[in-house]
Design a protein around this nucleic acid. Structure first.
Lengths: 155, 155
DNA sequence: CCTTGCTTCTACAGCGGCTGTAGGGGTTAG
DNA sequence: CTAACCCCTACAGCCGCTGTAGAAGCAAGG
């Protein structure tokens, strides 16, 4: 008698938090599985696979929207591969763009730090670099898309 | 008679949106400037400088928290440069970590795409790579910090 | 002076992708 | 039986903004 795969068991199995699994259900990424009489969710192996898929795609930086598309494609395996390919290519392009930006940032941060010789904030070249925005790596304007800012620095 | 530097003027001058300027005020990144009798904000050149500083730091990926710290340091120019240095070093380290991750992602996405020879989703290697999470670039676990996900894909 | 059309004001809801909390009930090991 | 844990729903909060609504201010033209 294997124990029922409740949401907690599934969570441990996949490394996806309980609350996150429920969240995925509310946004339609995974189906409402069967329930016990008392209303507890009971999952099958398909849920494990699906969560693994989602997790991996998230690790690769795919947006939830893209993952939705991929799952939709997955469920009709006869359709052409080109759609999947397109999504992956889009993602690769996005990754490359972010790579370029990050490389530029790294260079500027490095430059800032190497010229600093210690002293007070008043004479700090790091501070100067930040204040003097004429060194900006980007043209000024309202376009701040694709900025590289961290998120989810949680544990 | 130069026109008063209202929030809209400041916005055009700095490329920071009106709403964003007000937001920065609410979170304490910039001070409430003087107001006209009717309650409109009127800014001085200091606000232009401050916003330029914030913008540049944001472009470099500094978090709002870090920027808060930097501004606090900026306002007491006699303090030691080491604090500024530390913040910048932290940021550089974060950027490098994200660079590493992104490079790994790029490699995996490239690999996925090059092995795909077209056909149907059922035989798609891209899909396979995503499904077979044993290729995962990261050990499974609950730690999903520093994941590289885009945000603010706005215009 | 009045209108037109822009700007500014406040206050609050929404984005993505979750996480955390409150307040309850279910289940299981000792 | 009880303690410890699990699960349920529903909703608020996180960041860094953006967008909306509805009201009031302001500059220029007639």
């Amino acid at each position: 008698m294997a124990r029922r795969r409740t949401i907690g068991v599934l969570s441990r199995e996949t490394g996806v938090k309980v609350t996150t699994i429920r969240y995925y259900e509310t946004i339609g990424l995974i189906d409402d599985p069967g329930r016990t009489e008392s209303g507890q969710r009971v999952y099958g192996t398909d849920a494990v696979d699906r969560l693994g898929f989602i997790r991996h795609a998230r690790d690769l930086g795919f947006s939830m929207e893209a993952i939705q598309e991929l799952i939709a494609l997955q469920t009709k395996p006869g359709s052409a591969c080109t759609a999947v390919d397109a999504i992956a290519r889009r993602q690769l392009a996005a990754v490359r763009e972010r790579l370029n930006r990050l490389e530029a940032l790294e260079a500027e941060l490095k430059r800032m730090l190497t010229t600093c010789e210690g002293g007070t904030v008043g004479t700090c070249t790091v501070m100067e670099s930040l204040t003097d925005h004429r060194h900006c790596t980007q043209p000024h304007g309202t376009d701040r898309s694709a900025s590289v800012i961290p998120n989810r620095e949680n544990g």
